[in-house]
């Protein structure tokens, strides 16, 4: 029997489909722009991104949402290929969260 990937949810039982419109947040717009640019500059394909998302645990995937998955998948790729240092990124994130300010970049 084959194992389903965490993202392979087609046909699974599920509840109500949310119908409320959700406004894209400012950082989410910027994230899309950043990944658009990085895809070309670093020659990273959608399939590579998907592979990174598919490596999430079922629990992580289950509680994730679209932009969170995009961010986490891309971070995984950038850590793997050495573009971004994971420890430095974690430290920077902690610093931003501690300050509570968006005015860092």
């Amino acid at each position: 029997m084959s194992t389903r990937l965490v993202s392979d949810i087609g046909g699974k039982p599920a509840g109500d489909i949310p119908r409320e419109e959700r406004r894209q947040l400012f950082w989410e717009k910027q994230l899309i722009a950043v990944v658009n640019l990085l895809s070309s500059k670093l020659d990273i394909t959608l399939d590579e991104f998907r592979r990174a998302v598919e490596e999430m645990s079922e629990e992580e995937y289950g509680r994730s949402y679209l932009y969170g998955r995009r961010l986490d998948g891309w971070l995984r790729l950038l850590f793997e290929n050495g573009t971004i240092d994971a420890d430095a990124h974690a430290a920077r994130t902690a610093q931003i969260l501690a300050s509570g300010s968006r005015d860092h970049v």
Binding site: W27, L42, T93, Q95
Partner: peptide
Amino acid sequence: HEAKFLALKAMLIEQGIL
């Protein structure tokens, strides 16, 4: 999530990638 993104964006800019 936003903080993780802001950190990423800052590092990409500082490294001259974007």
